[in-house]
């Protein structure tokens, strides 16, 4: 069953917390991974791989650069999840 927007944000928050140590409540739709959440380009690869597994979605490398904010990633996953 496909995840809801709320479930995706919650999942991304847990992933970002695990990788960057940011409190889950700080991971909001308008937050930038790089500027707000201490996720550098290498850690972003980890976030993407973890999100792919969790939400059963493929995020090709060329699409990763468009995922600037939590909202971008959430929208992408909503649209592409299996």
């Amino acid at each position: 069953m496909a995840a809801t927007q709320e479930e995706i944000v919650e999942g991304l928050a847990e992933i970002v917390n695990e990788i960057a140590g940011i409190p889950v409540e700080d991971v909001q739709l308008d937050k930038s991974f790089t500027d707000d959440l201490d996720v550098d380009s290498l850690s972003m690869v980890e976030v993407v791989v973890a999100a792919e597994e969790r939400f059963d979605v493929k995020i090709p490398d060329e699409d990763v650069k468009n995922l600037k904010t939590v909202g971008d990633a959430t929208g992408y996953i909503l649209k592409h999840q299996a």
Binding site: L42, S43, V45, E46, V49, E52
Partner: peptide, 10 residues
């Protein structure tokens, strides 16, 4: 392949 850490080299 996908699971190899991007932090491996540094």
């Amino acid at each position: 392949v996908r699971r190899v850490s991007p932090h491996t080299v540094p």
